[in-house]
Nucleic acid binder design. Structure first.
Length: 274
DNA sequence: CTTGTACCCTGACCGC
DNA sequence: TGCGGTCAGGGTACAA
C-alpha cells in the first residue's frame, strides 16, 4: 500500500521507537516473507543485534544493525508494523507474519495480509547493488528538473508508467503519480520522452510538492494504510483525482476520468490535463 | 535496451 | 446467502 510519504511516516515512528534497541528473539510465522534466506538463519542472525538507525530509500525501509548488516523491509501492498507488549489491535492485526522481541519488553509486530511484502537481511555490498538499481530520491536536493528530464529522455512509455518505474524515480506509486500529473496539468497518457522543458519543470515541482505535503499530513489512508501507532493519514482529504472517477475536477469542473495503464487505475481530468 | 503480460496472495465489495 | 468477477498505496520474471 504505502508509497514514499507513508513509508517515511512509518520510518519516523519506527526510528524513535527502535533506535538503540536490541532484538532478543525473532519469530517468523509466515515463512515466505523472508526473501533471501531461511527463516531459521534469518532469526539466528538477528539475535542480539542492536538497531542503530531506521532509514528509507524510495519505498524501502532500512534498519541498520550493529554488525554492519541491513535489514531491508518492503511493505508492498499490505505490510504494516505495530509496537507494544502485545498486539495493540487484534482485529487489525489478523495476519501477523513476524514478531521481533526487543530488549525493552516490547515486540515489533509485522502484519501482512497478502504476504507480498517481506524482509531481506543484506550485507552492505548486497544492499549497495540493490540500491544502485533505484532511481533518484525525489525529495533530495540533487533531484533537479534537469535530472528528471534525463530520466524521462527517450522513453515512449506513458508518463504515468514512467513515474511508477522505481528504476527511474524511487518512491512514487499509483496515488501520487496521478496526483502529481494533475497538479502539473499533464495528460498521464503522453509519452514520457515527449514532455517539453516546461512540462518537466512543472512535473518536477508537482512531484516534490505533493510528496512533501503528504508527509506533512502523515500520508494517505485510502483503504487500510495506518501509521505505526494505528492512526490514519490525513492526505486523503487533499486528493484531487485519485479515487474520484466521475466527480467534477476542482479546477475546471470536468468529470474526472479513470483509465487503466500498466494494469492499474489512473485518474485524471480530461479537461485541464493536456 | 524497451514494453507488455502473467503472477504472487487475500479480502472487500458489487451485481445477480 | 452464495457465487463469480473486479479491484486493491507493489514489484518481479519472463516473452516479444
Amino acid at each position: 500500500m504505502p508509497e514514499l510519504p507513508e513509508v517515511e511516516t512509518i520510518r519516523r515512528d519506527l526510528a524513535s521507537e527502535l533506535a538503540g534497541r536490541t532484538i532478543l528473539r525473532t519469530r517468523i510465522s509466515k515463512p515466505d516473507i523472508v526473501l533471501n534466506m531461511s527463516p531459521r538463519s534469518f532469526s539466528r542472525r538477528l539475535r542480539g543485534r542492536r538497531i542503530q538507525s531506521v532509514d528509507r530509500r524510495g519505498k524501502h525501509l532500512l534498519l541498520s544493525l550493529d554488525d554492519a548488516r541491513i535489514l531491508q523491509v518492503q511493505l508492498r501492498m499490505s505490510g504494516r508494523f505495530a509496537i507494544g507488549r502485545r498486539v495493540p489491535d487484534p482485529s487489525e492485526f489478523r495476519h501477523i507474519a513476524a514478531r521481533f522481541e526487543l530488549d525493552d519488553s516490547r515486540t515489533l509486530f509485522y502484519d501482512d495480509v497478502r504476504r507480498l511484502g517481506g524482509f531481506q537481511l543484506l550485507g552492505a555490498e548486497e544492499w549497495a547493488s540493490v540500491e544502485a538499481r533505484l532511481g533518484p530520491e525525489p525529495l533530495a536536493s540533487a533531484f533537479t528538473a534537469a535530472k528528471l528530464a534525463e530520466r524521462l529522455n527517450g522513453r515512449r512509455a506513458p508518463i504515468k508508467n514512467a513515474l511508477l518505474d522505481q528504476g527511474r524515480l524511487a518512491g512514487v506509486g499509483n496515488i501520487y503519480a496521478s496526483e502529481a500529473l494533475h497538479r502539473a496539468r499533464i495528460d498521464p497518457r503522453r509519452p514520457a520522452g515527449e514532455l517539453d522543458r516546461s512540462d518537466v519543470g512543472q512535473l518536477h515541482r508537482a512531484i516534490r510538492r505533493v510528496l512533501r505535503d503528504a508527509i506533512a499530513n502523515a500520508g494517505t489512508t485510502f483503504r487500510d494504510y495506518r501509521a505505526v501507532n494505528g492512526q490514519s493519514g490525513r492526505f486523503q482529504d487533499a486528493l484531487r483525482v485519485y479515487g474520484k472517477e466521475s466527480e467534477p475536477c476542482g479546477r475546471c469542473g470536468t468529470p474526472i476520468a479513470r483509465v487503466v495503464q500498466a494494469g492499474r487505475s489512473t485518474f485524471f481530468c480530461p479537461g485541464c490535463q493536456g
